[in-house]
Simulated assay, not measured.
Amino acid sequence: MSHPSERPVSASGAKMFKVAFDLNRDDSGWPPVSVERLWGEKTDVRFEIRVANTPFFVPGIAFGDLIRVRADHERRELVYESFTAESGHSTVRIVFMRDGARQSVERKLQEAGCSWETTDGFENLMAVDVPPEADYGDLRPWLRERVASGDIEIQESAISGRHRAQLDEVP
């Protein structure tokens, strides 16, 4: 039985921590939050965390990336300090612009070996994890076709070196 005060543990048995990423809003008010908190697991390196979920708003970070954090005693939380190393995963955000587009997008993402997260309050937003073994060179043109048709908008937030090498045109 788990207790609410117990810290979750990853599949590898590492303790999980929430890490706060402070975000800067642009002139249009994006992103709609000032802080996003991601789960991460400790590594053997002091103040290094492996990101354990896909961000909705944090730019340049993907599942499995290594980051450096600092303890903010005033806020009583770990805060993102710097990027350490990429994992080979990529993050793509999808915003659904038309009803009915989600099913075909989810089917294509599943075929490509991707996973995704959704969140309350942003029903039309999907944070997609593109794993290293996925062929982003094949998936990207399909996504761009959906953008051209007006079904979705995409943001290529963190494209790994492995996935960049699969592209004719680098984002």
Score class of each variant (00 low, 15 high):
Arg76Trp: 12
Ala85Pro: 00
Thr84Ile: 14
Asn124Leu: 09
Arg68Ser: 09
Asp44Phe: 13
Ser90Trp: 00
Asn124Ala: 13
Val51Asn: 01
Ser104Ile: 09
Arg75Ala: 15
Arg102Tyr: 15
Val45Ala: 14
Arg76His: 10
Asp129Lys: 09
Ala20Glu: 08
Ile61His: 02
Glu111Val: 08
Leu38Gln: 05
Asp120Gln: 11
Ala71Cys: 06
Phe57Cys: 01
Val92Ile: 10
Ser90Val: 01
Ala134Asp: 02
Val9Asn: 05
Val51Phe: 01
Glu117Asn: 11
Glu169Ile: 08
Ala52Arg: 04
Ala165Tyr: 04
Gly150Asn: 12
Arg140Thr: 08
Leu23Glu: 12
Ser157Thr: 08
Val95Ala: 07
Phe122His: 13
Arg164Ala: 03
Val35Cys: 10
Arg107Lys: 15
Leu66Pro: 00
Phe56Glu: 05
Pro55Arg: 02
Glu106Pro: 00
Asp65Pro: 03
Gly40Ile: 01
Gly40Met: 02
Leu66Ala: 05
Thr54Ala: 04
Leu125Ala: 13
Pro131Arg: 07
Arg162Glu: 14
Arg25Asn: 12
His73Thr: 06
Leu38Arg: 02
Gln166His: 08
Pro132Leu: 10
Thr119His: 12
Glu123Gly: 01
Glu156Tyr: 05
Lys15Ser: 07
Ala148Cys: 00
Lys42Cys: 05
Pro59Thr: 07
Val33Arg: 13
Ile61Leu: 06
Val45Ile: 15
Ser5Ala: 14
Val147Asn: 04
Ile154Thr: 07
Glu36Leu: 08
Gln155Leu: 08
Ile159Cys: 00
Ile159Gly: 05
Ile67Gln: 04
Arg37Ala: 06
Ala101Tyr: 10
Ser12Glu: 15
Gly150Leu: 12
Leu66His: 11
Pro132Val: 06
Gln155Glu: 10
Ala134Asn: 07
Ser5Met: 10
Arg7Lys: 15
Val105Ile: 15
Pro132Gly: 02
Val170Phe: 09
Trp39Arg: 03
Lys15Leu: 13
Lys42His: 13
Ser157Cys: 06
Gly88Ile: 07
Arg46Pro: 07
Leu139Tyr: 09
Thr54Trp: 03
Ile159Phe: 13
Asp44Thr: 13
Val130Trp: 07
Arg68Asn: 14
Gly60Lys: 08
Glu106Ile: 03
Cys114Ile: 11
Ala158Pro: 02
Ser2Glu: 14
Arg102His: 12
Pro32Cys: 06
Arg50Glu: 07
Pro171Ile: 08
Asn24Asp: 15
Trp39Gln: 03
Ala101Ser: 15
Val35Ala: 01
Ala158Trp: 04
Gly60Thr: 09
Glu153Ala: 14
Tyr136Leu: 11
Asn24Gln: 15
